[in-house]
């Protein structure tokens, strides 16, 4: 999915003397881009990554900023701090778009990892050791098919999560919001994944296959 880059280039021109008119253009184009792309957030983020497309960024903001805010509030952050943090996360998305690899993560996954790391920074002031970058096979040309497949499998995972019985879904959500402490997880043998129905296992399995496909 490619965008017409020309309107975005206009936005890189010197700041307009009529900033609100420029903003209205960004918003209109964001709506148009969203309508054209369906919910192809990967294409939006690649437009940000490859040509600093502000309209694509605006579309991403309107979808993901409220979700980051909601995620953080459910994790116990105050609404005011969650709002500020959602801004930080979106700023990070803009600045670090070069680090996004559509063969390894959907946009939702990537945004989640940024929000998670911000939450750790805020709550504990503790570091979160990250694995080193593994060589996942020789550096290849971007594989559009692998990226698309990953996006589709991730969407299936979302559907599987939505179809779970409420109690099981709540358990998974609590684990990610951080409501379930490590010791609580330890006490519940095999939980949460052990009790999750085959649907989500199946969805994870499919996702795994597409990861392995991406690794070649």
């Amino acid at each position: 999915m490619m965008f017409d880059a020309s309107p975005a280039q206009n936005l890189d021109a010197p700041p307009s003397r009529r900033p609100y008119a420029a903003l209205a253009r960004v918003k209109r184009r964001a709506e148009k881009v969203t309508a054209e792309a369906g919910e192809d957030w990967t294409a939006h983020l690649l437009a940000v990554r490859d040509r600093q497309d502000r309209a694509a960024f605006a579309a991403l903001f309107q979808h993901f900023a409220p979700r980051v805010k909601g995620f953080l509030v459910k994790s116990g952050t105050s609404p005011a701090q969650a709002e500020e943090c959602a801004q930080d996360v979106m700023e990070t998305l803009w600045q670090k778009a070069q680090l996004f690899d559509p063969e390894r993560a959907s946009v939702a996954t990537w945004v989640f990892t940024i929000a998670r790391n911000r939450r750790i920074d805020m709550a504990r002031r503790a570091a979160r050791p990250e694995p080193e970058d593994l060589p996942w096979g020789p550096e290849a040309e971007p594989d559009q098919h692998a990226a698309l497949e990953l996006a589709q499998e991730t969407a299936l995972l979302g559907e599987a999560l939505a179809r779970l019985p409420q109690a099981q879904r709540a358990l998974i959500e609590k684990a990610f919001y951080g409501d379930l402490s490590h010791s609580e997880i330890s006490e519940q043998t095999g939980l949460p994944m052990g009790t999750v129905k085959s649907r989500i296992r199946l969805a994870l399995e499919k996702l795994r296959q597409s990861f392995e496909g991406a690794r070649g």
Binding site: L23, V26, K27, R54, F57, A58, F61, Q62, A65, P66, R67, V68, K69, G70, F71, V73, K74, P79, A82, E83, A86, Q87, M90, E91, A105, S106, A108, T109, W110, V111, F112, T113, A115, R116, T154, L157, G158, L161, A162, I172, E173, F176, Y177, I200, L204, L207
Partner: peptide
């Protein structure tokens, strides 16, 4: 992490008025 991304997708809370403008 993909599962976490899908949990995030389900956690929608409206941003304050003018937040997009502030971020841009």
């Amino acid at each position: 992490e993909a599962l976490g991304g899908q949990v995030l997708e389900r956690s929608d809370l409206a941003m304050a008025e003018g937040s997009l403008e502030a971020c841009l």
